[in-house]
Design a protein around this nucleic acid. Structure first.
Length: 210
DNA sequence: CTCCCGATAT
DNA sequence: ATATCAGGAG
């Protein structure tokens, strides 16, 4: 079985476990998904959703974020890690979107990654979940760990891993791949304690003995 | 490479 | 006490 068939089999099994592979972050608009995704760096989605539930009730429009008192916005996200940078990036992104992008969240990789706090991973999440565009594969800590454990890469660099995965999967599946690996990484193939006995990939996983 | 930097599980 | 959590910028 070559690599493409291997990945195909992995996706087939995971799709059965996780039938709806889209973001678990809650949002009501493109900008809200941008906010949630910026906040999600090295934070659990459960925690992010808890914070944004209050945040989205208080800040309704992009203008509300751009006009907010920086200290107040910082306080409103302060239970999340890296909250100073994240608050600053959210406000700066809001201003840029209003001034340069006519108050609309951009729909291209090049434009999205000009926003502060937005690189390929975050941009891929926005493009796929908001615009249905498969520009690349969002590689986060889960995707990286699972790709390594499943023997799909030996790299550490997320951009290299993204290109490797893109090379062995059909483009229409790119969004599904990252979400399926993320869900499986959260529930079963956890960083500290991979739950081999509950893993549907056990028999085809090179790391089954770890 | 370092820094950012809180909550939670183990 | 320590590792980890939907990373990104300098």
């Amino acid at each position: 079985m070559d690599l493409k068939e291997q990945v195909s089999e992995i996706l087939k099994r995971l799709r059965k476990e996780y039938p709806d592979p889209k973001t678990a972050l809650t949002f009501g608009s493109p900008f809200e998904l941008l906010v949630a995704t910026i906040l999600s760096a090295q934070a659990t989605d459960v925690h992010v959703n808890k914070v944004t539930e209050k945040l989205f009730k208080k800040y309704k429009s992009i203008k509300d974020y751009s006009n907010a008192d920086p200290d107040m916005l910082r306080k409103d996200v302060s239970s999340i890690n890296f909250y100073r940078n994240k608050a600053k990036n959210i406000q700066a992104s809001a201003k840029m979107i209003i001034e340069r992008f006519n108050s609309k969240v951009p729909n291209t990789m090049d434009e999205l990654t000009t926003l502060p706090g937005v690189a390929r991973k975050t941009a891929n999440i926005i493009l796929s979940n908001v615009y249905g565009i498969n520009e690349g594969i969002a590689v986060d800590t889960h995707v990286r760990r699972l790709a390594q454990r499943l023997g799909l890469t030996k790299n550490e660099d997320p951009v290299k891993i993204e290109k490797e995965l893109m090379a062995v999967t059909p483009q229409k599946e790119w969004s599904n791949i990252s979400h399926l690996l993320i869900f499986h990484g959260r529930k079963v193939c956890q960083a500290k304690k991979p739950m081999h006995k509950e893993c549907v990939l056990y028999d085809i996983c090179p790391s089954r003995n770890i």
